Simulated assay, not measured.
Amino acid sequence: MKQFTTGDLSKQIGDITDAASREPVMLTRHKKPCFVLMSYEHYEHMRAGGNPRRAYSISEMPDEHAALFDEALDRLGRGEGYNDEP
């Protein structure tokens, strides 16, 4: 994710909005993350749940994810999966 300062925003609005049209950009203030600027299309996609990456609590985890999780835990319990994966 590209970063700009809030001061850059007033000086480089065209460059920053161009970058935000391609991917979200972080705006910092005093070297700390402050805002994220993104296209409206990206925002709507996120709001509609179009991003497949999601964190679940165990109680709400879909069955297919729970099965994969259990399988991975079993492999780790047998000592597999640490150094044998590329």
Score class of each variant (00 low, 15 high):
Met46Asp: 00
Thr28Val: 09
Gly14Pro: 10
Val36Tyr: 01
Glu71Asp: 06
Pro86Gly: 02
Glu64Gln: 14
Asp18Glu: 11
Arg53Gln: 06
Arg47Cys: 13
Tyr40Cys: 10
Tyr56Arg: 09
Arg54His: 09
His45Gly: 03
Glu80Gln: 13
Gly81Trp: 13
Asp74Ala: 10
Gly79Asp: 02
Tyr43Lys: 11
Phe69Cys: 08
Met38Gln: 13
Leu9Tyr: 08
Glu71Arg: 10
Asp8Cys: 11
Met61Asp: 00
Asn51Pro: 11
Met38Trp: 05
Asn51Lys: 10
Phe4Met: 04
Tyr43Ser: 00
Leu37Glu: 00
Leu27Arg: 06
Gly7Arg: 04
Leu73Tyr: 05
Pro24Val: 10
Met26Phe: 08
Arg22Asp: 00
Leu68Ser: 12
Thr28Ser: 02
Arg54Val: 15
Asp84His: 10
Leu9Ser: 03
Ala55Cys: 10
Met61Gly: 03
Lys2Glu: 07
Phe69Leu: 11
Ala20Gly: 03
Phe35Ala: 01
Ile13Asn: 10
Glu41Asp: 07
Asp18Leu: 13
Glu80Trp: 08
Met38Gly: 03
Pro33Gln: 01
Leu37Val: 15
Lys11Gly: 00
Phe4Glu: 01
Glu71Lys: 12
Leu73Met: 14
His42Leu: 13
Arg54Asp: 00
Met26Asn: 01
Arg22Leu: 12
Val25His: 03
Leu73Gln: 05
Ala19Phe: 11
Gly81Cys: 09
Leu76Ala: 08
Lys31Asp: 11
Glu71His: 09
His45Ile: 11
Val36His: 00
Lys32Glu: 02
Glu85Ala: 10
Thr5Ile: 01
Asp63Trp: 08
Ser57Gly: 05
Cys34Ser: 12
Ile13Ala: 15
Met46Pro: 02
Ala19Tyr: 11
Gly50Glu: 02
Ala19Asp: 02
Asp74Ser: 07
Thr5Ser: 10
Asp70Gln: 11
Gly7Ile: 02
Val25Phe: 03
Arg78Glu: 08
Ala48Ile: 04
Arg78Pro: 07
Asp15Gly: 04
Gln3Ile: 14
Gln12Thr: 06
Ala20Asp: 00
Cys34Gly: 01
Ala67Phe: 07
Ile58Arg: 14
Leu76Ser: 03
Thr28Lys: 05
Asn83Val: 13
Gly79Pro: 07
Asp70Trp: 06
Leu9Lys: 02
Glu71Ala: 06
Ile16Cys: 04
Phe4Pro: 13
Gly79Trp: 06
Ala20Val: 14
Glu44Leu: 15
Lys11Cys: 02
Met1Phe: 13
Ile13Val: 14
Pro52Ser: 09
Pro62Ser: 06
Thr6Asp: 03
Met1Val: 15
Ala48Cys: 06
Leu76Arg: 15
Leu37Gly: 04
Ala66Trp: 14
His65Phe: 14
Leu73Phe: 11
His65Gly: 04
Tyr56Leu: 09
Glu41Met: 08
Tyr82Glu: 00
Thr6Glu: 05
Tyr40Asn: 13
Ser57Leu: 12
Asp70Gly: 07
Ser57Ala: 06
Phe35Glu: 01
Ser10His: 09
Ser21Lys: 15
Ile58Tyr: 12
Met61Trp: 07
Glu44Gln: 15
Leu9Val: 10
Arg53Tyr: 14
Lys2Leu: 13
Tyr40Leu: 15
Asp18Met: 12
Ser39Cys: 09
Leu37Asn: 01
Lys31Arg: 10
Pro62Trp: 05
Asp84Met: 09
Ile13Pro: 07
Ala55Trp: 10
Ile16Trp: 07
Gly14Ser: 06
His42Phe: 13
